[in-house]
Amino acid sequence: MRRSDTPAEHAVLLGDTPADVRGGLAHGVRVIGVATGRTSAADLAAAGATQTLPSLADTERALHLIAG
């Protein structure tokens, strides 16, 4: 975030681990959890992800969530 011209409140992080979710939230970034790794969508939501996706296969849905 220090190198970005985008304020945290306008940024979106896509992450597939609870650590990704916690890191984004710690910096005020909206986090979309993507259950493409070993972590389930339920676990990403429990970690605080704003929204979750089972994968990035549904591009239209992913872009909709990113756009907010």
Score class of each variant (00 low, 15 high):
residue 1 M to H: 12
residue 1 M to T: 11
residue 1 M to I: 05
residue 3 R to I: 03
residue 3 R to Q: 12
residue 4 S to L: 07
residue 5 D to A: 15
residue 5 D to N: 15
residue 5 D to C: 06
residue 6 T to W: 00
residue 7 P to D: 01
residue 8 A to I: 00
residue 9 E to V: 08
residue 13 L to V: 05
residue 14 L to E: 13
residue 14 L to A: 07
residue 14 L to Y: 01
residue 16 D to C: 03
residue 16 D to N: 08
residue 16 D to P: 11
residue 17 T to S: 14
residue 17 T to W: 05
residue 17 T to F: 03
residue 18 P to V: 09
residue 18 P to C: 08
residue 19 A to T: 11
residue 19 A to V: 11
residue 20 D to A: 12
residue 20 D to K: 13
residue 20 D to R: 09
residue 21 V to Y: 06
residue 22 R to T: 14
residue 23 G to Q: 11
residue 23 G to C: 14
residue 24 G to T: 00
residue 24 G to H: 01
residue 26 A to R: 04
residue 26 A to P: 05
residue 26 A to K: 06
residue 27 H to W: 00
residue 27 H to Q: 15
residue 29 V to C: 01
residue 29 V to W: 00
residue 31 V to D: 04
residue 33 G to Y: 09
residue 33 G to I: 03
residue 34 V to G: 02
residue 34 V to N: 07
residue 39 T to N: 10
residue 40 S to H: 13
residue 40 S to Q: 08
residue 41 A to E: 08
residue 42 A to H: 09
residue 42 A to Y: 11
residue 43 D to E: 12
residue 44 L to Q: 04
residue 45 A to I: 06
residue 46 A to C: 05
residue 46 A to W: 03
residue 47 A to C: 07
residue 47 A to D: 03
residue 49 A to E: 04
residue 49 A to T: 06
residue 49 A to S: 03
residue 50 T to Y: 15
residue 50 T to R: 13
residue 50 T to S: 12
residue 50 T to L: 13
residue 51 Q to K: 11
residue 53 L to C: 06
residue 54 P to D: 00
residue 54 P to S: 06
residue 55 S to V: 00
residue 57 A to T: 09
residue 57 A to K: 00
residue 57 A to I: 00
residue 57 A to L: 00
residue 58 D to V: 02
residue 58 D to Y: 02
residue 60 E to T: 10
residue 62 A to W: 03
residue 64 H to R: 15
residue 64 H to A: 12
residue 65 L to Q: 02
residue 66 I to H: 01
residue 68 G to E: 10
residue 68 G to M: 12
residue 68 G to W: 08
